[in-house]
């Protein structure tokens, strides 16, 4: 199975009463299987843009298409079930076990119980948690890193062809974060799921991304591979962001990326 394409065409979001648009005329395409990072400071519209893909936020202008189908023409609930979703606060359901949390989307889709149970164990193993130990735990008995692993497992449970991640590793400590980043790259490569990943952390963007979309005040500054971004920043803002001209910094990231792949 391969990932879906995600195509933004002039995507614009305005919140009532706000001075400028939260997202202004954004166009780019994530190719099937690509991991695209939306990078920018808080308030730049990257989360809003992400949330237009599964229609948690509706566009006021332009369009978003998944596999060529405009999401505006698809039932929002069905659309969301077909797209993985993971967020910084994780949002594991506190009254359900780890297994029940992971099983949410397969259950909503009406998978047979034996298939769901097998899938839950498979997913726990995929995210590095021993199924026998973790399956029946409650979310409050998990560490931050474990909870986020379960959050990722829940997001990919029904084998979505597109995955939306909103700063999923923003709240875990640095050591756990780099492990999770490494594992995410592996998982996404294996699944070939098209992934949009929001972060404000340039370091994280460089480690994970096939391509980076740099955003600022609702608009796109540059869309480029990490190497291109480091070598040829398009605007003064991006230049500052990437510490352009700092050869040591650049060679460090070339090294980091090599060790990740």
């Amino acid at each position: 199975m391969s990932g879906a394409s995600i195509q933004f065409d002039g995507a614009t979001v305005r919140y009532p009463g706000a001075g400028h648009a939260a997202v202004e005329n954004v166009s780019f395409e994530a190719a099937p299987g690509e991991l695209v990072v939306l990078l920018g400071p808080s308030g730049c519209g990257k989360s809003t843009l992400l949330r237009t893909v599964n229609r948690l936020v509706e566009l006021q202008g332009g369009s978003v298409a998944v596999d060529g189908h405009d999401v505006a023409g698809v039932d929002a609930v069905e659309l969301r079930r077909s797209i993985g979703y993971a967020i910084q606060a994780v949002g594991l359901f506190a009254h359900m076990s780890v297994a029940e949390n992971i099983a949410v989307v397969p259950s909503l889709l009406g998978w047979p119980p034996q298939e769901i149970a097998a899938r839950v164990d498979e997913l726990l193993a995929t995210v590095g948690l021993d199924p026998a130990r973790y399956r029946s735990r409650r979310p409050r008995a998990l560490s931050g890193g474990e909870a986020q692993r379960v959050g990722v497992a829940r997001a990919i449970a029904a084998r979505p062809r597109a995955l939306l991640m909103d700063e999923p590793f923003g709240a875990v400590d640095a050591l756990v974060r780099s492990t999770l980043q490494r594992e995410l790259v592996r998982i996404v490569r294996e699944l070939r799921t098209t992934t949009l990943f929001v972060t404000h952390d340039f370091d994280e963007a460089l480690k994970l991304a096939d391509r980076i979309v740099v955003m600022r005040a609702g608009s796109v500054e540059q869309v480029a591979t990490p190497d291109e971004l480091l070598a040829r920043p398009a605007t003064a803002y991006v230049r500052e962001l990437v510490h352009a001209g700092d050869a040591v910094y650049r060679s460090y990231y070339v090294h980091v990326r090599e060790t990740l792949r």
Binding site: R51, N54, L56, V77, E78, L79, R80, R81, S82, Y85, I87, A89, V90, G91, L92, F93, A94, V104, V105, L108, G151, R154, A155, L164
Partner: peptide, 18 residues
């Protein structure tokens, strides 16, 4: 109820009733 859980529920594709 934790807003993150409600956001996750919506994002995963639960209907308002669910």
């Amino acid at each position: 109820v934790d807003p993150a859980q409600v956001d996750a529920a919506r994002g995963l594709g639960m209907s308002a009733r669910q």
